[in-house]
């Protein structure tokens, strides 16, 4: 196999490779692990895929928080199955990042030292059972909009992991919606609890799509490389449009007085996001930022004896085989 080392290439050779790379992308062909790729493409993808992987894994915490307090055994089993899926999604994504020549240990390390991010939404606390409904409906709903689009991303392993993940996500959104629907059929208190959860999670869900296109640091290059297939604002609009009817169907109100159908655009207009809050949460000052990473670190450290035991067992087996 030929391994390319960019450092040993002349600038005209490099230009040729770059041009060929972009032609391939323009022709809607996928980039596969052994292909030559610009160093910036590789870095950009490792950043995006690992951020996505970390989100799946950190995202288990706000829901894990309610597993022991689910109102019925059935809801408990469902929530457990959902959280289990998210761990699996983390795995699919970490392994597709690893095809770009970075190790799992390095990825985890950058989550722990704060250099890698995860979705800002998971830094909000989950205060009531209804939050499990809002998370499934809105947060998984927003993730699905994003992930459906990423099934067409230019990096093959990432695109394929998105296909696998999307197949499993529909259950997540539906179980969340089902929780809210059931509460909305209940007592006045239960209805209020559902509405309160939606009030708290609606705006943070819109923030999940990231800054406006004009303000997004990585957007233009990512679109050119077809890492992203639709812009933050396009995806956000899609999510708003689909959520309005879903809210209405079970009598929930979305907490935005500016939310109104725009006949001309054929979309709903909606109010401005509080970007100061977004920046605060992304830069580490959300309610739960410290707790989320500290918990991950603790779980990782406390699990080290398992990894050690596996290694010791393997070694013992090997030495027996030799003997």
């Amino acid at each position: 196999m030929i391994q390319f080392d960019s450092k040993e290439l002349s600038s005209s050779e490099l230009e040729g490779l770059n041009a060929h790379f972009q032609e391939r992308i323009d022709a809607e062909e996928k980039i596969e692990p052994k292909d030559w790729m610009p160093e910036k493409y590789r870095k950009n993808l490792i950043r995006q895929i690992s951020q996505h992987a970390h989100s799946e894994v950190i995202g288990m915490q706000p829901e894990g928080n309610w597993i022991t307090r689910a109102p019925t055994l059935h809801r408990k089993a469902v929530l457990l199955a959902k959280v289990q899926d998210e761990a699996g999604h983390g795995l699919y994504l970490y392994s597709s990042a690893e095809t770009m020549g970075i190790t799992r240990e390095e990825l985890i390390e950058s989550l722990h030292d704060g250099s890698a991010k995860y979705a800002q939404i998971f830094n909000y606390p989950t205060l009531s059972w209804a939050d499990m409904g809002a998370l499934g409906w809105l947060v998984d709903g927003a993730a699905i909009v994003n992930q459906v689009s990423l099934q067409r991303t230019s990096y093959g392993p990432y695109a394929r992991s998105m296909v696998r993940i999307c197949k499993e996500e529909s259950f997540h959104q539906r179980q969340g919606y089902h929780i809210l629907m059931t509460l909305m059929e209940g007592s006045a208190e239960q209805k209020a609890m559902a509405q309160d959860a939606v009030n708290r999670f609606w705006w943070p869900s819109l923030m999940m799509f990231g800054p406006h296109d004009a303000a997004s640091a990585h957007s233009a290059q990512s679109m050119k490389w077809k890492v992203k297939r639709q812009t933050n604002d396009e995806l956000r609009q899609k999510f708003v449009d689909q959520s309005v009817e879903q809210a209405k169907a079970i009598g929930l109100t979305l907490p935005d007085p500016d939310l109104v159908w725009n006949e001309e655009r054929g979309h709903f207009d909606f109010g401005e996001i509080d970007w100061a809050e977004f920046d605060r949460v992304v830069s580490g000052s959300g309610h739960c930022n410290r707790e989320r990473v500290a918990h991950h670190r603790r779980a990782h450290d406390e699990g080290s004896w398992v990894r050690d035991a596996i290694c010791a067992y393997e070694e013992k087996k090997r030495s027996r085989e030799v003997a």
Binding site: A77, A81, F171, R174, Y177, M181, E245, A249
Partner: peptide, 19 residues
């Protein structure tokens, strides 16, 4: 024995059933 892992397990109103 975990039918609830499937999307079809959740019966939703028709107008939002494409979710």
């Amino acid at each position: 024995d975990k039918p609830y892992r499937h999307a079809t397990h959740y019966k939703l109103p028709d107008e939002v059933n494409s979710m």
